[in-house]
Structures are given as structure tokens and as C-alpha cells.
């Protein structure tokens, strides 16, 4: 689907990559240092400052408990980034392993495995994540695990497709003829050749994971308090939409900006790394 975004030319690849990377960099810094960077303690109640409008003292206003929204947004970056990155890494690891194995050892078992991956891919990922957290219960690691599962089929199908086209190439058949073992072929010859595609897909996946985590939190099934989460802020602010729209609007904007940054970064990266000469001139 990203290909069409590219065709609409939302900018030169290098610009997309750098703008995306800049926003991601800011989010990473916020995630690393957390609430210490904010002007207030994001969890400090202040009964005198309940639902105040955005002002110089409180850039994005305060919530019903008098907590500073801007500080909460800064503190919330950590959960989004951790959940996004770790879940994609999990899905990437498992999916790549499945894809490499299914692509290298062809047979009935591999076929059934890939059919199962196809089925999981078609299934709506939010419902899948909901179902898994429903059965496992809500915690940081369960949310990460549930999201990781939703990424496994994408990576498995992607890697297997690449492997199937690579395995007919001369350098792979040559390695096989020289007596190089299957595991070594996978690790030394196949994996480095799919790493570009994986990087593009992974950076796109982090954006998706951040959106899905926010949806889960919005539904009350995300990372539980006291951890700060943009999705939960949005949900809590929703009850005060008429009185204090800034809570929901600001937390939604944070989710949107970071997800968009990952999307732009991935789109640009795809143009730089994956597009082969000639393919771009369709």
C-alpha cells in the first residue's frame, strides 16, 4: 500500500527520510529521559489547577486532576516507543525465522505453515491483538507480545517471498554446490540480502504498532496505569471533550505525528534502498 503513497510524491525520498528521522529522534530522546524533561511532574495532582486552558504556565492545559498535559505527553513517549520498537523486533525475529525456514526447506510442512501465516495476515490485527490480550490479561509484556504476534505473518511472508526469488540466483546455488550447509546459507547469504526490505518494513511496522497500542489503550486494554500512555490520555480526555478538548486533541496529535514520522521514514527509505533502477520509472 505504501507504493501508492510514493506515487503521490509527498516529497523527495531524502527529505522524507530526514524529516521522519528528526521526529523519531525527538521521540526517542523523550522516551529515554521521560518525564524529567517536562516542566512538571506528570503525575502530580493540583486541585487548584483543574482543567485549566492552555496558557504559558501550562502549554497544553491541565486534566481533570490538575496534572499538566504537556508533561504527560512527554512522559507518554516512552510507552509508545518501547511498545512499538520491542513488538516489531519480536515479530521481526519470529517472522524472519519462519520465512527463512519455509523458503529454504520446501515441503508440505512449510506449505501449511505459510497458509496459516496467510490466514493470520488477512485477520484484522487489532482484533487479533484484542483477542490475545483478552485471554492473557493486560500488562506491558502482554501488549507487546500480542502486537508482536500480529507482525509475524507480515515478516514471514515477506522473507519467504524474497528467499524464493533469491534461492534461484547463482550465488546461492554456488554456495550450495560448494557444500555450504543450509543454516549457514540462511545466515550468511540469504539474511543479508533481505535486510534492506526488512528495515523498510520494520520502520513502517513501528508506526503501525504505536497506532495499535494507542487503540488498545483507548479501549481500556493497553498498558495499565501508572505508566503514561497517549491512548489512555485520549480516552480520559474524551469524557471532558466539551470542557477541555485540549487533552484529547493533544494526545491524538502526538500519536499522529509519531506514526506519520515512521511512515514517512519508511516510505523514503524504501525509495532509497529497495527501488531498483528502472522500477521507479513505471
Amino acid at each position: 500500500m505504501r507504493r501508492w503513497t510514493r506515487e503521490f510524491g509527498s516529497g523527495k525520498p531524502a527529505v522524507q527520510v530526514s524529516v521522519g528521522a528528526a521526529v523519531i529522534g525527538v521521540a526517542l530522546v523523550l522516551a529515554a529521559f521521560g518525564a524529567r524533561l517536562g516542566p512538571y511532574d506528570p503525575l502530580r495532582y493540583d486541585p487548584r489547577e483543574v482543567l485549566t486552558r492552555p496558557s504559558v504556565a501550562h502549554l497544553l492545559g491541565t486534566d481533570p486532576l490538575g496534572r499538566d498535559v504537556f508533561s504527560q505527553i512527554i512522559g507518554g513517549a516512552r510507552i509508545s516507543m518501547v511498545v512499538g520498537i520491542v513488538s516489531v523486533l519480536g515479530g521481526l525475529g519470529a517472522g524472519t525465522a519462519i520465512g527463512l525456514v519455509a523458503g529454504t526447506l520446501r515441503g508440505r510442512g512449510a506449505d501449511v505453515l505459510m497458509r496459516a501465516m496467510d490466514a493470520l495476515l488477512v485477520f484484522p490485527s487489532l482484533v487479533l491483538a484484542l483477542a490475545i490480550t483478552a485471554f492473557l490479561g493486560v500488562s506491558l509484556w502482554n501488549v507487546i507480545g500480542a502486537l508482536a504476534v500480529t507482525f509475524v505473518p507480515t515478516f514471514a511472508i515477506l522473507v519467504r517471498g524474497e528467499v524464493l526469488s533469491l534461492r534461484e540466483r547463482e550465488f546461492i546455488t554456488a554456495a550450495g554446490a560448494l557444500g555450504v550447509g543450509r543454516l549457514r546459507i540462511m545466515w550468511r547469504h540469504l539474511l543479508p540480502n533481505v535486510s534492506d526490505v526488512l528495515l523498510v518494513q520494520a520502520s513502517f511496522g513501528v508506526g503501525t504498532a504505536i497506532l495499535t497500542e494507542a487503540s488498545l489503550s483507548f479501549l481500556g486494554l493497553g498498558v495499565p496505569p501508572p505508566a503514561l500512555s497517549w491512548g489512555r490520555m485520549l480516552r480520559e480526555g474524551y469524557s471532558y471533550l466539551l470542557l477541555a478538548p485540549w487533552i484529547s486533541v493533544a494526545s491524538g496529535a502526538a500519536i499522529f505525528l509519531v506514526a506519520l514520522a515512521f511512515q514517512m521514514f519508511s516510505d523514503g527509505l524504501r525509495d532509497v534502498l529497495v527501488r531498483r533502477p528502472g522500477a521507479a520509472a513505471r
Partner: peptide, 23 residues
């Protein structure tokens, strides 16, 4: 418009629409 449409989380779109058209 379509770039925003693809990247905006739908719960946020909903909240903005409710703010403008309902409230």
C-alpha cells in the same frame, strides 16, 4: 487530505469530527 486520511488514527479523526460537527 488523503495523506492525512491514511496516517491519522481513526479515534483521533472521530474526536475531531465530534468536536466540530457535534459539539
Amino acid at each position: 487530505l488523503t495523506a492525512f486520511g491514511t496516517a491519522m488514527p481513526n479515534f483521533w479523526i472521530a474526536i475531531l469530527l465530534i468536536l466540530v460537527f457535534a459539539l
